[in-house]
């Protein structure tokens, strides 16, 4: 019945992760969106740290530090700079209205948990909800990508999707080899740069970051 405190703490952090994913889904402002992303990174770093401490796997400390550096500091800073340069501090326009999106999100959570239930049975040493939560936050990020119009918020969604995957990797399976993690971190960083370049290209072509304009690219 009694669950060790560290596990309870990870559970709480998992719930916070999901909460932030929902908050991102409901957020209209792009600046707050980036701040929420930074918070998500912080929660992730903390949970990685707790996992590292409880399982005393030292390489996870590095990975926690890396997360902190990359996702709480560098990427948000990059994104801030990006929206400053692009001058896109507008409200996020959503395709669906927010309560409907949230309702869809709720359904996705239920779906994700049921999907994860058999996998969780196999995983050892963790409470069964963690994989479900990770999967749910991945799905919520996908939903966010679907419902947003502006390219910047889609990138934030993409990054938060990666956060969900990372959480699944560290908390549920107690971490990947450090090399893989380093690789992923590098990938994400590079992807952000490439996205940044893309934004400038998109804006130059359409004079807007609204991706609905990309429909014009189709041959008529």
């Amino acid at each position: 019945m009694t669950i060790p405190l560290s596990l309870q703490f990870i559970n709480l952090l998992a719930a916070l992760l999901l909460l932030i994913a929902f908050a991102m889904l409901a957020q209209r402002r792009i600046l707050s969106l980036i701040n929420l992303f930074a918070w998500q990174g912080a929660v992730l770093a903390l949970s990685t740290f707790v996992v590292a401490y409880t399982t005393s796997q030292h390489h996870l400390y590095y990975s926690a530090a890396l997360t902190l550096l990359l996702k709480v500091m560098v990427l948000p800073w990059l994104l801030h700079r990006l929206i400053h340069r692009l001058n896109v501090r507008w409200d996020v326009e959503t395709l669906l209205n927010i309560p409907t999106t949230m309702l869809a999100g709720l359904a996705l959570v239920i779906f994700a948990f049921n999907l994860a239930a058999p996998i969780s049975q196999l995983a050892q040493g963790i409470t069964r909800g963690l994989i479900g939560i990770a999967l749910a936050s991945v799905m919520l990020s996908l939903l966010m990508m679907l419902t947003r119009r502006k390219a910047v918020s889609q990138v934030v969604a993409f990054l938060s999707l990666e956060n969900g995957l990372f959480f699944a990797a560290t908390s549920a399976t107690q971490g990947m080899p450090l090399v893989v993690e380093l690789g992923i971190a590098l990938d994400v960083l590079v992807a952000t740069f490439i996205f940044g370049i893309f934004f400038f290209q998109i804006r130059e072509t359409f004079e807007s970051l609204d991706i609905t304009h990309m429909e014009k690219l189709k041959d008529d």
Binding site: N11, A15, L18, L19, F22, A26, I98, P99, M102, L103, G105, L106, V109, I110, F113, T127, R128, G129, G132
Partner: peptide
């Protein structure tokens, strides 16, 4: 509505975890 959904989500989380 956000509050309502969050509360429902809390209840769900309780069921799930």
């Amino acid at each position: 509505g956000t509050a309502f959904l969050l509360a429902v989500l809390g209840l769900l989380i309780h069921f799930l975890l």
